[in-house]
Structure formats: structure tokens, C-alpha cells
Design a protein around this nucleic acid. Sequence first.
DNA 1: TCATATCGGGTAATCCTTTACTCATTTCCT
DNA 2: AGGAAATGAGTAAAGGATTACCCGATATGA
Lengths: 332, 332
Amino acid sequence: MKKENISIKEIARLAGTSVATVSRVINQNGRFSEETGQRVREVIEAYNYRPNELARSLRVDKAQVVGVIVPDITNEFFSYIARKIETDLLEKGYMAVICDTNESMEREKQYIETLKAMRVGGIIYVSGDQKIEPIRGIPAVYIDRKPEFVNGDRGSCFIGGDNYQGGYLAAQRLIRAGRKRIAIVLHARTIATQEKRLNGYRQALYDYGIPGGEELIYQVENVDMDHGFRITKEIWESPERPDAIFYSSDILAIGALQYFHERGVKIPRDVSIVGIDDIPLSARVTPALTTVRQDYLKYGSLASNAVVKMMKGDQEKRTYILSMELIERETV
Amino acid sequence: MKKENISIKEIARLAGTSVATVSRVINQNGRFSEETGQRVREVIEAYNYRPNELARSLRVDKAQVVGVIVPDITNEFFSYIARKIETDLLEKGYMAVICDTNESMEREKQYIETLKAMRVGGIIYVSGDQKIEPIRGIPAVYIDRKPEFVNGDRGSCFIGGDNYQGGYLAAQRLIRAGRKRIAIVLHARTIATQEKRLNGYRQALYDYGIPGGEELIYQVENVDMDHGFRITKEIWESPERPDAIFYSSDILAIGALQYFHERGVKIPRDVSIVGIDDIPLSARVTPALTTVRQDYLKYGSLASNAVVKMMKGDQEKRTYILSMELIERETV
DNA sequence: TCATATCGGGTAATCCTTTACTCATTTCCT
DNA sequence: AGGAAATGAGTAAAGGATTACCCGATATGA
């Protein structure tokens, strides 16, 4: 615990040169002779020197760090996105700091404040609160949920899936399986992504002449298996029991699978199910979940590309909307 | 993108005082009158000032940050630990930066270097490589896998479960269910945790007079569902097909469930299974997994307590070994 | 040959905080 | 009342890196 950290000044002394030169060698800018460079590199090597990142960042007023804010790191959808971003960023020479808000808006705000105080170079904000204040003064990219201001705010950028299409695809699949009473379970309906999925679902119903009413629309407070389980119980015990359900998240659908299993309901004989996201787990549960795939790894890589571009001052495309795809498995 | 960040100097000017006083007010140390304090706070409030964390950390040569290194953030076991640590640390006024190494030793090293360069105050290292170099010059706590040097190195600390007991409990349960050919599947056997589980399992077999031989011990290269699936296939197709399997991770056991389902093998009629960890998913799969619980959230909270104590210079207990507990469910 | 570029590299200012010193006032004690 | 102690607050020195600026020496060109 006593080993002092060696500083650039020491290195300069040991290499018989000045701090400026050492800095130049490290950052490969400015001019220096090959010989001096060699000598400096040797000393750096010998003492295993690594510049103090705090001092560097302070000087240039920008850390080589980007904050990644996710609502629930225990959900595969987010942990895979986080990992993808982290990997990509690392390759580009940046450090990702992943912040799990645990669905709390308060923590969301707290994190943004702290990240700003740390002078991170950018922020990637996954599926956060719709009404969040724009993150100002710092490049920000939003994934999944598009905040209202994105189009107006230079310095922010959005990446997400075509949720209308997702809703349409899911409902269409259920219709084609001959289902007539198709329920949909959403996360809070006020969230734009959810609204769009609902619209897609409705359009499909309309196109195929299937009746759909308010009584078939369910909402869930939180997206986890337990809520999936409970809402399914409610749906199944309601007077207008449906013969198919579209869950606006694989996690919810997997919770549903558990309910139906316990209840002895056979899938897809008694009820057909489709989820959305296509997290890895969906392929592994039994029966394997039919779902709508979101290319969430792509969200991650587009996002990391976008932030670093923005951090370098380049103008970045404002919005990416990726299309979704139906994945056939065993639940319909 | 143009808004300049206001500095303490500006605040001092606006409050008609000196930077030293402003700093005192912010940090509640040193002396200042109530009146001045009030005035300064008002200006800070008005301009929404937040000290530059880089400068602060540079001055005190220590960031209010602790690095948390995990091998696989998509595994619930780790994501729950990470979240717990993050939450606890946040409450204590520290920031956690979660680093997912994706099981890569190279990234592990890279992260440690970068974290040091960022002058984090401490590192929590979850289930990393056994042969890692001790992290020097910085408080470190290790969770799950105990590196050899921990006992010798002041400034490091270990938290984990009683793996011998875990192995014993699992095997014992299987034996009591009347099973005679009990296989065990481990992650690399050279890992100390795995070795201990194996010993516990062997002791149980011995105590109850059940034969156990090398041919019942399997190893897996990686801990994920896919490897669980594949090793199970191998086991099931082998000439000495067992009637019970202990998986050294719930994730592996869940992969096994999938294999047996596809294969039409009934659990626990044809084969009994027990896992270890008790991740949330284990309770939700079908059939629900009988497992050995590790109190991994406790690992997280003990670890965050330990790092902050060490960061404050207090001596911390060297080692915590928590006991495990058998959880009865449906697979045996 | 002399003026000018180019090259290599050093000096010192700067980034923003914290904090050891210092000092002028006020309060307190005997 | 006079010296000690406490109070409130300012000055300036770190802390470790980057970089604008400067200078001497060599190379270049007319």
C-alpha cells in the first residue's frame, strides 16, 4: 500500500529529458528524435509507468470514458447490450462505466450528475425515462426509447427498433395460426415504444378483420418474470380468456410460460404466445419461445460508434431505426 | 455543447469570497461563518455547480470510485452481485464502475491497468483468474475465488462460500433420494472452488458408502447454458449413464434441463439434478431446480463494506466464508 | 554566405481542487 | 487589562499531465 505512483516528472528525470518530451513520446504528437523516443520508452517500460488518467483528463477537460446507463442489468436484453458497448468502446480506446439504475429515476438523475462531474466524454442511455431532461453539454446517444427532444437537440442521437413493425409481426403470426382473441401485454402504455407496438398490433388485427378491444390490452408495472407470471394469471382467469397473447418483452413471456406450466395449460395447444426481443434465454426455455427479434447487439455497436464520433466532434446521423424479424419457435 | 462548466473560482467570485472558503463550505470542513456558508450555498444552487471530480480526485490522489470486475455480466449470479455492490457503494457515496471481462484474462489485466490509471480507490474482483497477480497499492477484495496470496497480502481480503459444504450437501441430497450413480460436472478442476466442491461430493459418497470414480467426473470449459446442454448430452450417451447429476452451477443445470426435455427424459423420474448458486432463474424454470443456495447478495454487501473500510485505512477482517444451504425444488 | 525553415526539445502556464499557512479580529481568562 | 485561544477567511502551493511558446542548432535555398 506504500508504493508511490511514479509521475511523468520522474520519468523525464530518469530519461534525462523534460516532461514535455516524455508527453510527446507517449502521445506520439509533437516532435522528438527516434533516439530520445527510444530512451523514454525504455524508462517507461522499466518502471511500468502509466500516465495518471485523472491529470490527463483534467488537463484536456474530457475523460476517455463514456457512461452507459441501463435500467436493469439482470435482464439479458440489457446486459448483452452493455457488454457489446463495453467491448466496442474498449477497442476504440475508451472505458465504459456501466450504471444500473435498477429502474429508479432518482438514481438515473444521480448517475447523470456524477458522470458529468467525472467529465465523461459521452453518455449512452439505454431505455431510460421518456421525460428525462436532455443531457446537455455532452454527447449523448439514446437506445430503445426515444426522448422527445432528440430531433431538436444537436449533440444527441437515437437508436432503436421499428416497434410498429414488431407489434404487427407478432399479431400477424398469431392471426395466421388461426387465433381469434389476441391479447397484448404492455409495459406502461405511455411509453412511446409500447404505444407503437400497440399500434402495429391493432393494424394487423384490422387488416385481417379480427376484433380487438380495450379488454384485451393489459399493462404491467415492471418488466420481469414475476410480473409476467402475475399478469398472465389475471388474464387467464378473466371472463374473456384469450387464445393468444403477445407479450411486449420475452422476459414477461417467460414468466407466462411458468404460469401455464404450473396450471397445466398446454402451449401452443391451448394458447399461443409470442414475445419480443429474442434474448438468448428465449431459445432455451421449454417450450422455446416464438418471438420478434430485435438486433440489440447492433444497437450497441451503432451506439458506441455514434458516441465516439460525436466525442471527436464529427456530426453524426440523428436517428437509426432497425427493422425487426419474426423468429419461429414452439409457442405458436 | 457550448455550455462551459463553471468552476470553483467563479463561484468564489460570485459569492464574494475565496476559493478556499467555497471548498470549505462544500466539504464541510475547515471553518466558516454560517452567513458565508449560506451565501456560498445559494450561489452554488443558483448556478447548479458541482465540483469537478477529476480535479478533486487528482488533488487527493484517490477517486471516489471502485472498480468491480466480473467475468460474465450476462450471468445472473454476477449481475446480481454487481448490482448489489453498486447500490451499496452508491449509498456510501462511491461510484462503482463495472467491468465485464467476458471471461478474458487479457481484458482482466487491461481493466486493472486502466482502473489504476484512473486512480480508483479500490477494486472488487469477482471470481477472476486464480493465478492473477496480486493487485498492489490499492485495496482489493476478492469474491468467490480466493487467490493464493490473499493471506499474505495486507490490503486484500476474500469473501466466498463454503464450497466443500456445498458439494457435500448436493451429493447428500442425491444419495438420500436413493440414487447410486451420481455424476458431477465441474468447471475446470484446477479452480480451487471446484476442487473443494469435488471434495465435499466425494466425502458424502464415502460417508454413505456410494461408489464414485473418475468416470463420473466431468468438466466443462465455460459456464453457460450451452455448455450445460452439451456436457449433458455427452454424459447421457456415455456407457456408464448416471442416475443423478450435480452441476457446479445453476446455469449448467438449466442447460441440462433443456437437453432432457428435448430428449424426453423425465426429471426426477429418470434422473435427478441439483445445481448450485440459486440464481433467480432456477426457481422459474420447469421443473424448478433443486439447488444449493449461495448468499451472493451477502457477498456483495460484505465486499462493499470491506472496500470502503480499507479505503478509509481501517484494517479489515481477512476472510469471510459463508455457509450454503440446500433448496428443495422439483428436480430430485 | 546569409537569411530562413525545420527540427528537437525545454520552460512554464494551465486545468480545478484541496489544504497548509498566515493573518487580522474577536472572545476568553485570570 | 493584557496575553492566549479561537474564529473566519484569504494566499498560494501542490497534484500530474498537456501544450503554447520559445530558443538554439542544423539544414536549405538563393
